[in-house]
Structure formats: structure tokens, C-alpha cells
Amino acid sequence: MNHMYFSEEHDMFRKSLQEFLQKEVVPHIDKWEEEGTIERFIWKKFGDMGYFGLAYPEKYGGLDLDLFYTIIFLEELQKINSGGFAAAIWAHAYLAMTHVNKEGSEEIKEKYLSASISGDMIGCLCITEPFGGSDVAGMKTTAVEKEDSFVINGSKTFITNGVYSDYLVVAAKTAPEKGGKGMSIFIVDRDTPGISATKLNKLGWRASDTAELAFDNVEIPKSHLMGERNQGFPYIMQHFALERLIMGVNAHARAEYALEYAIQYMSEREAFGQTIDKFQALRHKIAERSSEVEMAKAFNYTTAKRLDEGEYVVKEATMSKLLSTKIADEVIYDCLQMLGGYGYVEDYPLARMFRDSRLGPIGGGTSEILKEIIAKMVIDNKDYKPAT
């Protein structure tokens, strides 16, 4: 264990989390992958163990722990071989809940954040739109003010937990004429009239419910506005650093798991009178890929440390997601190859990992968008600032 970042308490937490996941989650994974539905009981078990409250204030039932508990949480979720289950959990805990914690009023936090930490409510974050993709500022969904309410119309897509969540954190234009400067953030109860969800049939992340959502004259109280009106875009941008780092950490963790599995397999598989881990071509490929994963992990830990100390690491987090997801895809591709025909069989973990990993360079901002963001920072000297 890397004791530059992890204490003995961190190590104990990792061990207990591993035991919890093996006992409570792993026996159900294949069923959830096949059915595309994660049973409700597991959310409550996560809540009872305090896992949803790692990063949140004690006032609302959280534990207010340092970011490396979250890093451990993310890493171990990647090692049970269900990208969909992991995504459903972290999309609730670090996408939806982050906005509730940072922008929600005291009343909202007491109702939604507390219930999210306990596992009694599930949240989803609704930003991406069918024709917008990574163009957040170009969203079309609107929230029109009435006397004592807002009325939301529009659509969202690729929303993790979009079907089964209890509440939705929704970005919508309150001043469309201002473009990205006219966006606000709202919290919306699932049972509000006018919300409909269509489940998407995906290549990977099969256990998670990913939805396209429609909002047809959805009327919510004015008190469900989160943060300042027309400040939604800076809020979203501020949290992208955490989201991108999360996806970078997910990537190095699943790549590490793939390597561990492939190395174990190679130590047992025999060909031409010896185990295949003795063949130089395969050994050197493993050496190369292991080096890349170790470098990505070290960079991600350093970035996490800086983020935990309050730095606005949007450049580094963007680099983390760009390179870590690319490395993970290449590592898992090669690890699948090490298994030969068995790598292509669903009874072995690499087939699912291969499908699940492919979303890494797409979700949370495509690699093409991230490259342009990085180019603006390193070539044009653009300085992204946190929301004030």
C-alpha cells in the first residue's frame, strides 16, 4: 500500500469494504447485469455502512472523511467487475449528491442529502441532452418562472440512475438569451407530473439504468432552485474536476484489476510445455502496460491530494480522465488477448470489462472535447476559475 497517501486507517477501511462487496454485492452482480436492474436493498446496505456519507458533513449523517477514502471506495467498486453497478453507486454519491451538498438550501439538504447518505433516496444528475452531448452551454431545456414556481420543459439523455432514482438534479435555462450564463440548477422529485423516462439499451454498463428523460410542463416550487439563479454553468464546471478525476481513478483501478487477472491466468495456462507467462512477447507487453497503469495511478493520487487540499485542479483532472481512460482501454484490450479465445467468452471477466471500459473515453466529456479544453489551458493560457 502507498503510505504517502494511505494511512493504517485507510488500509483497514479498504479491507472491510472488500469484505462487504464480496459478501453483499458480488453474489448478485450477474443477476443485475442480466436484468439491468439493481435491487433496492443494496442501496440501504451501503447507506447503513456509511459508504454514501464518506465525503459529506456529519450534520447530515456523513463521516466528513478525506478524499482518499473516496479513492478507495471507487477503486474497490471497479474490482467486482460491473462497471454498471459501480457507475450507479458513484453517480448517486458523487454527481447528484455533490450538487445537493454544495448548492442545496438547508431545507433541501436536510431532506435530500440526509436521505441520500442513509440510502433511503437515490439521485441522478441530468445535464446531457440528446442534441447537445458535451456542449453543456448549448442546452435547450428551460425553466420558466411563474408566480411561485418554475415550469421545466425539455429532455436529457445518458442519465445514470435516470429510471429508478427518487430525485433528479436538473440543469435548465432560466435566461435562454444569456446562453451558458443563463443556466440554473434544480432538484426535482421523481413523482412530479410530466416526467417520463425511457431506458437505453447499452453496449456495456448493463447493470445500471441509463435513461433518456422528457420534461413536459414539470412544475416545481421555487424553493427547489439550488444555489444562485443563472449560476448553473459555473457550478457544473466546478464539479467537473471531481467527476473527471473519479473517471480517471475508475480507469486505473479497472486496468489494474485486468492486469492482476491476466497475470494470474498466464501463470496457470500452459502452452508448448510451459506456462505462458514465460513467453517474452507476453511478458514485455505486461511490463509495458503495468508501467502505464502505475504512472496513471501515481498522477491520479497526486491530483486527488491537491484537490483534497482545496486546489482547483481542473487541468490535471481533465488530463487524468483523458489519459487514464485511454490507458485502461488499451490495457484491457491486451489482457483480453492474453486469454486467447477465453477472453471472448462471457464466463470470463475480460469480455464484460472490455465492454464496460469503452465508455471511459466518452462519458463525462469525450476525449476529443477534453483535448480541446487542455489545449486552451496549455496553448491559449485560458484560466478556468471555480464558481464564487
Rank of each mutant, 00 (worst) to 15 (best):
M266V: 00
Q337T: 15
R306M: 12
M319H: 00
P234F: 00
T275K: 07
R352G: 08
R289F: 10
S324N: 15
M353Y: 07
A317F: 03
V313L: 11
M266C: 10
Q238L: 01
A258C: 06
Q274G: 11
A287R: 06
R229P: 05
Y301G: 05
A351G: 03
L336D: 06
G273V: 05
S290G: 15
E346D: 11
L225P: 09
A241C: 08
K222C: 02
N230I: 00
K315P: 01
A296E: 15
D356T: 05
L350P: 02
V331H: 06
V218F: 00
V293F: 08
T302Q: 14
S223C: 03
Y261S: 09
E330M: 07
Y344D: 14
I332S: 06
D277L: 13
Y344L: 15
V313T: 12
D308Q: 08
I332P: 05
E243M: 10
E292P: 00
L282E: 13
L323P: 04
L350D: 03
A253Y: 00
M353A: 02
E268S: 12
E311C: 04
A317R: 01
I246S: 00
E256D: 11
Y257F: 12
A262F: 07
Y344P: 01
T325K: 07
A296R: 10
K305S: 09
A317I: 00
S291K: 15
S290H: 01
R229K: 15
G340N: 12
A287M: 05
T302E: 14
R306K: 15
F215E: 03
T275Y: 05
L245A: 01
H239G: 02
L322A: 07
K297H: 11
L242N: 05
L339F: 12
F215A: 05
Q280F: 09
G310F: 12
S324T: 09
T325R: 06
K315M: 12
I246G: 00
V345K: 04
H224K: 10
Y333V: 07
Q337F: 13
I236C: 02
F299E: 11
S290Y: 04
